[in-house]
């Protein structure tokens, strides 16, 4: 068993599949991270993905252009995020409940629309939709092991990678990142500094909508070549769990999404050696919860440790730190 796992992990094909199945999760996790940093939980990511997947397929089939499809899909996804923002930020509705409601609207609405357009409920196979291209990267493709993993992936996989950098930039390099952080960490402080928290939250919602749009379009126009009902398959929810594991950073999102992607891909392989498929499929979700719990636990412990240390120094009144900070 261990031998088998080691064999799988060392194969480039495994990592190819990992990257592929991690990409959509990574995209939505980034979306969940950036909204969470601004202090709003985007529970509607699942719905965003569903609408993006459907609208992408419909528009690409209607126009014959995969790029227009992608654009329309992203627009649909952003729309969902904006509606969430409207209810949660303008009408003061509970953000989580509104998100859940929007997901329901999406689950039913996508099938409803698909049926109204094609007469089919389950799959868009009657629509001649297009597929996003895969890319072969010139030099990298020739590197022995890495080339097989990194090159030849769907364009969205690379967009996911670029998104990590982009979100990292937004959060750490751009001024808006500080405003996002201020809004999420101390809303009153942000307001007192003249920042409009609602604007910031809307901004993050739009970003998360774009990211979920990419992810949704990937699912129906790359990952597979059709929209199928419920195609998001809970990835939006997984993202909200992974967001916690990510610890609020773009780089953390990679690890969090990989946690799911690695086990998800491994599950396919473990099935091959006769592990019970149903049990194996529970694994990625179980691992995500585990990661979720471990991360919060470690964070709490670290916090307590910090407090204890501070007390030790305060009690002994050596207070070197205090002096240093008071002094100057």
């Amino acid at each position: 068993m261990i031998h088998f796992i080691a064999g799988v992990v060392s194969s480039s094909n495994y990592w190819f599949i990992v990257l592929r199945s991690t990409a959509p999760i990574l995209l939505v996790t980034l979306g969940a991270v950036i909204t969470a940093q601004a202090g709003i939980m985007n529970m509607a990511l699942e719905g965003s993905m569903l609408w993006a997947a459907l609208v992408g397929v419909i528009v690409s089939a209607a126009t014959g252009s995969v790029w227009l499809g992608l654009l329309a899909g992203i627009a649909a996804s952003v729309m969902v995020a904006l509606v969430l923002g409207f209810f949660a930020l303008k009408l003061d509705a509970n953000a989580v409940l509104s998100g859940v409601a929007l997901n329901l609207v999406a689950t039913g609405g996508t099938v409803f629309v698909l049926f109204a357009l094609t007469g089919d409920k389950g799959i868009s196979s009657s629509l001649p939709s297009k597929v996003l291209p895969t890319l072969t990267i010139p030099l990298i493709k020739d590197i022995p092991w890495i080339g097989k993993v990194v090159s030849g992936q769907n364009i969205i996989v690379y967009i996911a990678a670029i998104s990590v950098v982009a979100i990292d930039f937004i959060l750490r390099r751009f001024t808006v990142g500080r405003r996002i952080k201020a809004t999420g960490e101390n809303l009153d402080a942000a307001k007192a500094a003249g920042i409009d928290p609602i604007k910031i939250k809307f901004f993050t919602l739009v970003i998360s909508g774009i990211l979920a749009g990419f992810a949704g379009c990937f699912l129906s126009m790359g990952y597979t070549s059709n929209f199928t009902s419920g195609i998001a398959a809970g990835r939006g929810y997984v993202a909200n769990a992974a967001q916690v594991v990510a610890g609020g950073t773009a780089v953390g999102s990679i690890f969090a999404a990989l946690l799911f992607g690695l086990t998800d891909a491994m599950a396919t392989y473990l099935q091959n050696i006769g592990m019970m498929p149903e049990l194996i499929q529970a694994l990625p979700y179980a691992v995500t919860i585990l990661g979720f719990v471990v991360v919060t636990w470690v964070r709490d412990r670290r916090e307590n440790e910090r407090k204890r240390k501070l007390f030790a120094s305060a009690a002994t009144k050596s207070a070197t730190k205090k002096e240093k900070l008071h002094g100057v």
Partner: peptide, 17 residues
């Protein structure tokens, strides 16, 4: 009205960076 995880300078310029 400060954001504890940001530095003093970042807090100072917040909103007008």
């Amino acid at each position: 009205m400060l954001v504890p995880s940001l530095t003093a300078a970042e807090n100072l310029v917040l909103g007008k960076e």
